[in-house]
Structure formats: structure tokens, C-alpha cells
Design a protein around this nucleic acid. Structure first.
Lengths: 284, 284
DNA sequence: CGGTTATTTGAGTCCGATCAATTACAGTGG
DNA sequence: CCACTGTAATTGATCGGACTCAAATAACCG
């Protein structure tokens, strides 16, 4: 299902966003070769453990909506062209403007999608397993509109875009699945836009907490599973402002300590947040 | 080609947006029946002139990227199910949350797409001929995420979503075209998001003017072909603020009078606007 | 021409960003 | 185990961009 909270955007001028391990922060990903077809850039001085997915992982990838209905043969041919690779945290994976050589599937870890203009940086969304990113660019053979970096140590499956397009022509079910995925992504970004423009910072944070509560069992105990700095980015505010938004929510049944949040009065919080399926529900 | 300036968003609390002919402003569209299959809502007390497209119009529709490669037969079958309808200005066409019964093709006029939340209204984008709207919802059989109203008297072709989906299953070329269109739309909204978040109001206006200049011959004479109020909405600012942004641009080679704008120093304006293909170029 | 709507201009306010400084925290190495 | 280091998070103070409200002017339309 599609998740709008992966599609919230933030202008980020602060120096925070550019941190990371200086040994990796500004390098491109190294890629262990596993196929003959497309040659990925090979930078051998970064430790990696490229190789085969475990069968459990492959099963989960196969089960993605995007691939679930693919013909066996098409899937196998496409996967034979793919690379599976481990990346350290804070590694720059792709750069906006570059040609979209690969469709990426996050199998483990987390990847931050972001963009630049002027001298500002914006986090667009965060991708977690199991899901794909830059499908649109791959499908159109167009340049990336966003850059990507790992947040944590991550395992990523990289399928050459040419092979994705070949598979799409070979298998109707796959092309329909791509279509559905893109439609869903489109709607996600539209919802994100509505969220950003129709709600203020505090309302956005409140809705995010309510959304987390839903996905985490609905018991009023929420764990924020990304850095607050990135969450602020995702929710479209500065870290300082987010801190103040949390304070503002204390009067509405929200208790924060570190990355744990307790919602003690969900009805009250909803009165403030006014959640709407046309804005918040994935898959609506 | 895809146009990001149809995908700029604005929070609009002002009463301006809700104006229009009071006789039509809050009614749903009436539709003259032309086919047996899907029954559109029929509100006969609004004058309409539903009927057949002129062959020139049909040719233009057929030439859309979305339909150009369709099999003759599939196209004809689908079009036999469609309605062609004239609507007066400021007529409310569709409402967010409603099921997406039709794919709309604007053949003449202009349609404003907008959305609500809390008590605010946001204009998402404007559709002009020849192009479609709410393809994503039609393809997924999902509810509309946006509402739509005519800006001017408009001629709109309405194709029942069920027939769009049937055609998509009957014709691979069509499903691929839908896929490409959705990918392009997705990228447009991402660009819009970047535009909104990485540029301030004045920069957004400056880039819009540069974009208009490109599409209108590049001679430094630009006509703004929508109400300034709606443009402000499209560019993500209040009308008042837009007025001030125009003033701010006077020092950068911009002369405004009514809806005519002269760009007397394009290099200077570009220095301010910093246009980027990853943000401004349709089809990039 | 008169009435309506759109645009502009001005004044004041507020939300959120920025700057600066402190506190909290995680990882590192002694 | 505890300083040391660097980053994240919070807090306070200030600033600025954009919104709101109000009113005047301009454009539009019947």
C-alpha cells in the first residue's frame, strides 16, 4: 500500500542534512558485478558484500504488488540481470539529473530521497523495505528527479532499467502493475501536496502521529523510527519548529520522550488534526 | 508534453476562489446522454449542448500521446461509450471523494482542479486543451482526490472509466501510453513539490514568467492567460502577495500591465530565478 | 453607466525560519 | 568506566516572509 508519509517534503537549508561518515558521504556506490549486461560504476575501495539474496528476501520481492503477477519467465530473466548489494549508512546512491540506469528495490535498511535547488536541500521521502524507488524515471528512461542516500546500512536490489522496460513489454501483467504503481505514486504525491498546503506544521505533525498510531497497533504508543531531523524534513518544517510543534501538542494528549510518543487522548488529537482519507489513507 | 506549471499548488483561504455564476456555481454538471452504458447524473435544468465532436476535434483527441498508438478498434469502441458535452463557466464538474466514473478530456476551454481540507481551498492545477484529467483515479477505480470546475465555457469529452480500463486491457499500446502518461504526471508533481519548497514566492513567479516566455515565442512579451487570482493559487501564494512579488520583480526587468508582461532583461531575471530543467522543463 | 468582481496598496499580525547557545546523546578511545 | 568528540535535540530570541484584514482603485459585464 502506498504511504503518503513517505511523500512529505521539506525545505532544508540547515547544515544538519549533509552529515554522515566522511569516508562515504560523497562517494558513489560501489557495485559488485553479477551480470554481464549493464555495467554499473565500479568503485572497489568501498567495502561491500554484493551477491545473492536469501530466498526469503527473494520471496518478499516477488510478492511485491509490482512483481506478484509477473510471468515466471519474465521475472526470472529480469532478475538474472539484477545486482544485489549492501551499502553502508549515509552513502550517496544516485544523483538527480543522472540517467536512470536502475530500478532500485530496498530489501533492508532505509533510503532517503532528496533534492536540491538554489542552495537548499529538500527531503522528499524515505523508502523502507520492501519497496521500490525511481520507477517513473526507469519506465520513461528519463533522468532522476531526486537524489538518494542510505540512512542505515541497507541491502538494495538494482534492476537495470533497460531490463525493466524489456520485461514490461514482455509481460502484460507487469506493465499493468507498473501502471497501477505509478497511479498510486501519483496520488500519493498529490495527497502530500494537499497535506503540505492545507495544514499547518502542528496539524501535519499531529496527523503523522495518528498515522503512526494506526500502523503500529493503535494502542497510543508510537515509536518514531527515523531521526527527528529527517522527520521534520518529511513533515515540512525545521527541526526547531518541529520541537515546538511537539510542545504545542502536549496540550492535546501527546507525551514525547526521545523517539517514543504516547497519545493519551486520541479523540482530542483528532479534533486538532482532522485526519481525512483523501489526505492520509494509503491506497485511498 | 507535461507542464509543471499546471501542477503548482496554493493554499487559498480567501473568498475569491469561490466566486462565479451563482446560477451554476454549486450545481453538478448536467450531461446529455449519448450512449447506453454508464448513466451520468442528469440535471436537465442547466442548458447544455451535448452531442458529437467535430471531426477536427476528434482528430486532435486521437492525436494525444495517450491515444495515438491505440488500436483503431479499441479506440472506436471506447469512444462509442463517451459523452461530449459543453459546460458553462464556473460549473462544478467533479467532487473529491466521489467515485471516478469518467476520464475527462478537455477539448475546449479550461478546467481548474482544486482540493479542500479544514476550511481551506487549494488550487492544484489548470487543465487546458487538449489534455486529460483524473487518469490515475480512472485507472485505479479510486475516488477523485481533487474537485474540478470549469473556468471558461468548456467542451469536455467524458469517457466512462470502466471503458478506459476495458480498452487498457484490450490494447497493450494503450496501457503503455497510460503508463507513460502517469509516469510523466508523477514527475510533474514531484517537480512542482520541489518548486514549491525550494523557491520563495518571488522566485516561483519569476520562473513562471520565464516559462511563459519560452512557450510564447521567447520575445520577452508574455500574456498571462488565466486570472491573476488563479495564477497566484497556481504559484502558491495569496493574490496580495503575488502583487507584491510582481513589484519586487520590477527591479529585475519585469514590467506588468494587466495581463501583459514585458521582460526587458531576461538575463537579469534568470539570475534571480535560477531556472533548472529538473524543475521547470516539461518532459525532462 | 452602475454594480460586481478583480487587483492593488497599506497596516498589522503570525507562523515559521534563522541565529545562537545549551543540553542530551552516541560513539570512541584511553 | 569515564572524559572526549561530534551530532542531534531543545530552548530562547529575533527576524522576515507571507497571510489577514481593510480599503481604495481598476477592470469587467450586462
Amino acid at each position: 500500500m502506498f504511504d503518503i508519509y513517505q511523500f512529505l517534503v521539506h525545505e532544508n537549508k540547515s547544515p544538519y542534512g549533509k552529515s554522515g561518515n566522511p569516508a562515504f558521504g560523497h562517494m558513489n556506490a560501489s557495485l559488485a558485478l553479477r551480470s554481464k549486461k549493464t555495467q554499473p560504476p565500479d568503485i572497489p575501495d568501498i567495502p561491500t558484500d554484493g551477491g545473492l539474496m536469501r530466498s526469503e528476501e527473494l520471496t518478499k520481492v516477488r510478492a511485491l504488488d509490482l512483481f506478484a503477477d509477473m510471468k515466471e519467465e519474465t521475472f526470472d530473466v529480469m532478475m538474472a540481470m539484477a545486482y544485489f548489494q549492501a551499502f553502508p549508512p549515509h552513502l550517496h546512491l544516485i544523483t538527480e539529473g543522472d540517467p536512470s540506469d536502475f530500478l532500485h528495490v530496498v530489501v533492508d535498511g532505509a533510503v532517503e530521497m532528496f533534492a536540491h535547488a538554489n542552495d537548499r536541500e529538500t527531503t522528499i521521502y524515505v523508502v523502507r523495505p520492501y519497496s521500490t524507488f525511481i520507477l517513473a524515471a526507469s519506465a520513461l528512461d528519463a533522468p532522476y528527479l531526486m537524489s538518494a542516500r542510505t540512512i542505515e546500512k541497507s541491502h538494495i536490489l538494482m534492476i537495470p532499467s533497460v531490463d525493466v522496460r524489456a520485461a514490461m513489454h514482455a509481460c502484460t501483467a507487469f506493465s499493468h502493475a507498473i501502471m497501477a504503481e505509478l497511479a498510486s505514486c501519483y496520488r500519493g504525491v498529490i495527497k502530500n501536496t494537499k497535506n503540505l498546503k492545507l495544514r499547518n506544521a502542528t496539524e501535519r505533525l499531529a496527523n503523522y502521529l495518528l498515522y503512526c498510531n494506526e500502523t503500529q497497533g493503535g494502542h497510543g504508543v508510537v515509536t518514531i523510527d527515523i531521526e527527528k531531523r529527517i522527520l521534520a524534513s518529511i513533515l515540512g518544517m525545521s527541526p526547531e519548529n518541529q520541537s515546538r510543534a511537539f510542545s504545542a501538542l502536549k496540550g492535546h494528549g501527546v507525551e514525547v520522550s526521545g523517539n517514543k510518543v504516547r497519545l493519551t487522548n486520541i479523540a482530542r488529537l483528532k479534533r486538532l488534526a482532522k485526519p481525512s482519507p483523501l489526505l492520509d489513507d494509503p491506497g485511498f
